[in-house]
Amino acid sequence: MQKLLSEKPCTCLAFLYLNGNAPLVVYCCSILWCSLIMGSEATIKLPENVTVPGLIVFGDSIADQGNNNNLSSVMKCNFPPYGIDFTGGLATGRFTNGRTPSDMIAAELGIKELVPAYLDPSLQMKDLSTGVSFASGGTGYDPQTSKLVSVVPLSDQLEMFKEYIGKLKASIGEENTTHVLNNNIFLLVAGSNDLANTYFTLKLRSFQYDILSYADLLVASASDFVQKIYKLGARRIGIFGVPPVGCLPFQRTLAGGNSRICVDTYNQAAQVYNSKLSSQLNFLGNSLPQAKLVYVDIYNPLIDIIQNPQDHGFDVVDKGCCGTGDLEVVVLCNKWSRVCQDKSKHLFWDSYHPTEQGYKVLVDLILKDYINQFF
């Protein structure tokens, strides 16, 4: 019976229903188990006999679905014009005008249309089984990064994940929880705030570390986090590198001179970090049985879009859509800010975060290149 539940849960449901002799508790468990894997229709063809019950996300504002909404921090965006293109025009706390990569990836995998924030007060038990986001805008691998803006550090995101596991076990049982965790896809998106803000803009670490040693600190933190979620049951884990942070509109304005060019020093630092992270994940992947650790390169796809915008359908890649596009982010992008006429032609929504269309182009490239590496 357990083999049927774990390998072909919906076939198991039909078998139990047709024979009609199964205990009620097993029948109900089967119904619940089918609900875990039957979300929206998948647009990605997965390998045969592969299921992805849910998507779990950790990290920063790229993956924050609204966890910062009730924090005493300036790093929140649960107000217009954020969310202007989201369902109902709601500002949910997502750091863009519409959906985030988490939403898009979950939908493409056929899990569900939207990934909720774990700290959303309206979160229901049924939401847990198909995945949530623990991410908090403004956080990073360096503990100092989250302290600067009073957001949820990765250490606390890990504690919330442990709490989540407890709730899941109470709902569907320990064996089914283990199966869900082993087959979920986990995403870890962090590092940009450490480099762009903590190291370069505020220079809080640049007197203590050169960029090589600071990159080592970040990679060690990322590696430690991956090992901890692995011990808790995660097996399919995607770890994002950092983008060309020197090309973010905010950094162009602060350090790109009068012409607001990309800041080469910042981009070189990002490449150093990405190289070290990729190497460490290769090493780690060989030491963790059954783990699929996937390094996700977003630097090169994004720099290609920036250097060849019209090939990807964009007209503006050096400014955000909100306000002047030079500096506006979080509270500086607000209901009094003007919004560009054609958001789909802008790569960036504010001075840090892509538009929904920008994310869509990136997600399409990422899924095409990496999805099969998780299986």
Results as ranks from 00 to 15, higher is better:
residue 95 F to I: 13
residue 58 F to N: 00
residue 136 S to I: 04
residue 108 E to T: 13
residue 134 F to S: 04
residue 134 F to T: 09
residue 98 G to K: 03
residue 77 C to N: 09
residue 87 T to Y: 15
residue 63 A to S: 15
residue 59 G to L: 04
residue 111 I to G: 04
residue 141 Y to H: 06
residue 142 D to Q: 07
residue 71 L to Y: 06
residue 100 T to I: 11
residue 86 F to G: 10
residue 52 V to N: 02
residue 66 G to S: 12
residue 57 V to K: 00
residue 80 P to F: 06
residue 60 D to S: 15
residue 136 S to L: 02
residue 78 N to K: 02
residue 126 K to C: 12
residue 53 P to S: 08
residue 96 T to D: 01
residue 139 T to P: 05
residue 83 G to C: 11
residue 88 G to M: 03
residue 92 T to V: 15
residue 95 F to S: 13
residue 138 G to S: 07
residue 113 E to V: 13
residue 102 S to F: 03
residue 65 Q to T: 15
residue 118 Y to N: 01
residue 64 D to Q: 02
residue 133 S to T: 08
residue 147 K to T: 11
residue 77 C to D: 07
residue 138 G to H: 07
residue 124 Q to Y: 11
residue 54 G to D: 09
residue 111 I to P: 06
residue 143 P to A: 04
residue 146 S to G: 09
residue 119 L to N: 06
residue 96 T to L: 05
residue 109 L to I: 04
residue 138 G to L: 03
residue 66 G to I: 14
residue 68 N to V: 09
residue 71 L to I: 10
residue 75 M to S: 14
residue 70 N to G: 13
residue 57 V to R: 00
residue 110 G to A: 09
residue 82 Y to W: 05
residue 119 L to K: 12
residue 150 S to W: 08
residue 80 P to D: 07
residue 116 P to A: 08
residue 86 F to C: 10
residue 127 D to F: 09
residue 142 D to E: 07
residue 81 P to A: 04
residue 63 A to E: 03
residue 128 L to R: 06
residue 106 A to M: 10
residue 65 Q to Y: 14
residue 138 G to N: 10
residue 96 T to K: 04
residue 91 A to L: 08
residue 67 N to E: 00
residue 67 N to M: 02
residue 69 N to P: 13
residue 125 M to H: 09
residue 129 S to N: 09
residue 83 G to E: 11
residue 108 E to D: 14
residue 80 P to A: 09
residue 104 M to S: 02
residue 116 P to V: 13
residue 138 G to D: 06
residue 118 Y to R: 03
residue 74 V to F: 15
residue 124 Q to H: 10
residue 72 S to M: 15
residue 87 T to W: 11
residue 80 P to M: 04
residue 140 G to R: 10
residue 130 T to D: 03
residue 112 K to R: 15
residue 140 G to W: 01
residue 151 V to Q: 00
residue 52 V to A: 05
residue 105 I to S: 04
residue 96 T to W: 01
